[in-house]
Amino acid sequence: MLKSKRLSKKYGKKTVVKEVDFHIPHGKITSLIGPNGAGKSTVLNMIARLIERESGDIMFKEKDVLEWNSTELAKNLSILKQSNSLYLKLTIKELVEFGRFPYSKGNLTAEDREKVDIAIEYMELDDIKDRYLDELSGGQRQRAYIAMVIAQDTEYLMLDEPLNNIDIKHSKNMMRLIRKLCNELHKTVILVMHDLNFASCYSDYIIAFKDGKILKAGNAEEVMTREVLEEIYELPVAIHNIEGRNICVYY
């Protein structure tokens, strides 16, 4: 349902994404991996229309994302980035209510309120829903943002480096949550990941980028191989199969 054709992007003279073709499997978790500057975040941002593309198509439900009505697309596809430095003083509840904007344009209906409540409950933020975002810990704030995209109720959800700057425990909780979103709420999730082993353990499908091109795409076992990873990162790695997962050792 989401795929690209000959997608390219240049910054000045430097091409960062070169004629990339991919398809995102529906109802699964897909991780985009690759070294810095490989183009994975750029691709994600182009899908979300945050960056304008140079050429190529991104088809979502048989229609290019640029041809979608912005509001309609926002009901089907959402992105969450890590640089959420708000200048607004909002409570969690107010933030989550913003997730309903594509539907009600600010005048919440009873249905909107219900969805907001459900999202808050789902993220276990009920006790603190009236606290201001800037009073929260990093982990709580991140949960609040996820509650917002849950309230947005999109089939597709994109997260740009969701594990950035959080510790192992919270990383694990985050990935389990993403799994839950996929399994329980039937969302298609696309992640940009730096931690290979988290990607390996929690994704159904992995797309590996290098120098603006896709080097390999497939399920975790297919991509998490020594040949692929050594070529992407240009350093020796070893792959161990632990409890049925391919774990990559590169120290």
Binding site: A48, L50, L80
Partner: peptide, 10 residues
């Protein structure tokens, strides 16, 4: 809320 949020919200 900022450019990216706004676009993401349609």
């Amino acid at each position: 809320m900022g450019k990216e949020q706004a676009i993401s919200l349609g």
